[in-house]
């Protein structure tokens, strides 16, 4: 009987510890979003986290601009129609499609810009091939969700 009385404080302490654990869990649960029940599976070993290289959008844009300008020059100075056409095919691959619009600013002053008749990238690249000159530089590129150019704005060099 005495031993039972001795166990009472131990029991009380145990009860207190258990209840405090439960209340802490309740607080944690209250702060969490309700989660969907997920079947427990053996967790797959997580691959080592690779730190993705940070892409500077401006640097990426500059690289794209340089690549495109390079194509302009190569098409204009191509040694043959076939060589020019190969470059055109590759350059068009940088765009959403061959019909991507190209706007050409031929005059800009006082905040207004005057445009030549809009064309498409395929027609524009063929124009460079036919005229054997690359008179424009890139002013702006509008990208699509796949990182391809969906609209190009050019300006006279």
């Amino acid at each position: 009987m005495k031993s039972i009385f001795k166990l009472v404080p131990v029991f009380c302490v145990l009860l207190f510890v258990l209840s405090s654990c439960k209340s802490q869990k309740a607080v944690v649960d209250a702060n969490q979003e309700p989660e969907e029940v997920i079947e427990e599976t053996t967790p797959e070993p997580t691959p080592p986290v690779k730190e993705e290289p940070k892409v500077d959008p401006e640097a990426a844009n500059r690289a794209l601009d340089a690549r495109l300008s390079n194509y302009f020059g190569q098409i204009a100075n191509a040694s043959s129609i076939n060589a020019a056409n190969n470059n055109i095919r590759e350059a068009v691959g940088m765009f959403s499609n061959g019909e991507a619009p190209v706007l050409i600013i031929f005059y800009a002053a006082n905040g207004t810009e005057d445009f030549d008749e809009p064309t498409t990238i395929t027609k524009y690249l063929n124009y460079l091939k036919d005229l054997k000159k690359a008179p424009h530089k890139v002013k702006e590129m509008v990208m699509d969700s796949q990182g391809r150019i969906k609209e190009l704005v050019l300006v006279k060099k």
Partner: peptide, 16 residues
């Protein structure tokens, strides 16, 4: 001077 629609925007351009 003419107008056309490019990606939902109205663009004014000089047509020769």
């Amino acid at each position: 001077k003419k107008k056309t629609q490019i990606a939902g925007r109205t663009i004014e351009f000089w047509d020769v």
